[in-house]
């Protein structure tokens, strides 16, 4: 088993691929307006970024999944789910999708259809938290609040997810 295979299995052991879905490598980089504390959950920046934090995906993958630009999609794996609109771009390589961090579930995030109608989370909900010991050293990192969860931030921002078009949008 290659290392890539192993990591894919690690994130998608329980979650089965069903229907028109596709396994993509999901990256959660800084967006151009997301330099650490300058999050974009204010009206002005949301207006400038499609009203939500979109899932960027390749036009090739989107065409295969019959996802059109601005369709609602669910991005999920064993750890969690994120619901957003797809931004179909020629810039994204095939097999990859991108969610900028950090979308906040308090603004415009619908309920997940694949997870029993529960409110979907942000990008942190599907990225694994690898505890890095030095985040805990000397402090109380485990008690720090971040959007949608308590704990030290997750250093690993590269995981595998299933991307699927959302059946219906429920807020």
């Amino acid at each position: 088993m290659t290392s890539r295979r192993r990591s894919r299995a690690g994130d998608l052991k329980e979650t089965l691929k069903g229907g028109d879905a596709r396994i993509l490598n999901c990256l959660t980089p800084h967006g151009k307006w997301h330099i650490h504390s300058t999050y974009m959950e204010n009206h002005r920046m949301l207006t400038l970024s499609r009203g939500c934090e979109p899932v960027w995906m390749s036009e090739v993958d989107a065409a295969e999944l019959e996802i059109k630009d601005n369709d609602w999609v669910e991005v999920y794996n064993d750890h969690g789910v994120y619901c957003a609109r797809a931004s179909v771009s020629a810039r994204i390589p095939k097999g990859v999708c991108i969610v900028y961090h950090v979308p906040e579930r308090t603004v415009g995030i619908p309920k997940s259809q694949v997870r029993g109608g529960k409110r979907a989370g942000g990008h942190n909900s599907f990225t694994r938290i690898h505890l890095k010991p030095n985040y805990l050293a000397g402090g109380y990192g485990q008690f720090s609040y971040h959007f949608n969860y308590w704990g030290p931030i997750a250093p690993n921002r590269d995981t595998h997810v299933i991307v699927k078009r959302m059946d219906k949008v429920v807020f």
Binding site: K32, T47, L48, S49, R50, G51, C52, P54, W56, E59, A62, K68, D69, N70, R85, S87, V88, S89, A90, R91
Partner: peptide, 18 residues
Amino acid sequence: IKMGPNWDDDLSGSPDYA
């Protein structure tokens, strides 16, 4: 939300816009 002031920012939605 179907459109914004910079909807095609950074080539987003490029098959439809760019």
